[in-house]
Simulated assay, not measured.
Amino acid sequence: MNMRKLGKSELMVSGVSFGCMSLADDQNAATALLNEAADRGVMLFDTADLYQHGYNEEMVGKALQDRRQQVYIATKAGNQWRADGSGWDWNPSKAYIFQAVEESLRRLRTDYIDLYQLHGGTLDDPFEETIEAFEQLQQAGKIRYYGISSIRPNVIREYVARSQVVSVMLQYSLLDRRPEECCLDLLRRNSIGVLARGPVANGLLVNKPAIAYLGHSQEAVTAAAQAIASLSGEQRTPAQTALKFVIQQPAVTTVMVGIHTKQQLDDCLGVLDAPDLSPDEISALQAAVPALRYEMHR
């Protein structure tokens, strides 16, 4: 499997990584699916303490405990569940990050996290304190590297300028090309890896009925799905065409795909052997739907 270096880290990942948020509350099914993905070359498995009140981390940790040295586990912190479980509050403080990492380590059944990510961010955050927390965790050996998960250009720019993040996770697809305008080139110039999530736009590019999406009308979403379908066929499924559009973007290191079933796993991993999109095909996809701009958090 073609491997790619994640930013300035030593982590080598495949073009497709496993977004674990989509796992159902079934440990046996999760164990089988995650291990098959690992058997077939997937290296990076991403979860978060927010997902399923931490149970997602527990499932991932239990499923991968026997092959911990052969895979990379990524998780996130910053969203603190309220005591009554009614929701969560944003908390990027050092004290909370130190508390959260210990709980994640316990749930993941490991003594280190390969990639620890801040799960959001605002311009009101105590940047120096937050960055210091991640740096100290790295020095202590509790995490190997750190990054952020954010779609806010203003927050991304702050972490690029101030920190040693090796990655940024952001949403990117044919229907959400906003990162092209202000983030992808910046991250590439600074050798920061991009973990692209949402490559099929909640299924709208593949198999779900068209609805308005972000700033796109229902008609625009239909046009995008039709463009994807027109470039698919025996050699490439619609999902693979949508993923190729993302994977072939030079700034993208890996596509983080939410996988529910064995069939979806087959489809997603098949993209690595499917023919690349030609420059003309990429241009046709780009012409099918206009690229949007971030209206907030610029």
Rank of each mutant, 00 (worst) to 15 (best):
V42L: 07
E180T: 07
R197Q: 08
L186M: 11
S230Q: 13
V246R: 00
Q117W: 02
V271G: 02
K94I: 07
S217K: 10
N202M: 14
G61A: 11
R157G: 04
D280L: 11
S278H: 10
R293T: 13
V271L: 02
A287P: 05
L105W: 12
R152P: 01
V194S: 04
K8Q: 09
L187Q: 10
Y172E: 00
T261K: 03
T130G: 04
D273W: 04
S93I: 12
H119Y: 08
I151A: 08
K208C: 02
R157I: 15
N28I: 04
S93D: 12
A140T: 10
F245I: 03
A251C: 14
Q69D: 15
R67D: 05
G198H: 00
E129T: 09
A287R: 12
R107A: 07
T241F: 04
A77N: 08
N202V: 05
Y146T: 09
I73M: 07
A37P: 01
Y159A: 05
Y294V: 10
V166W: 00
L269A: 01
R236V: 00
A32E: 09
G54Q: 08
F245H: 06
N154H: 12
L44S: 02
V206C: 04
G203V: 01
H297A: 14
D276R: 11
A291P: 02
G147A: 05
T31W: 03
Y145G: 06
Y146G: 05
G233A: 00
S150T: 10
L6D: 14
A212W: 13
M3I: 14
P275L: 07
N91S: 07
V200H: 06
I247A: 11
N190R: 15
V194R: 09
S9L: 12
Q235P: 01
A100D: 07
L195D: 04
V13N: 09
L204W: 06
N79V: 04
D266I: 04
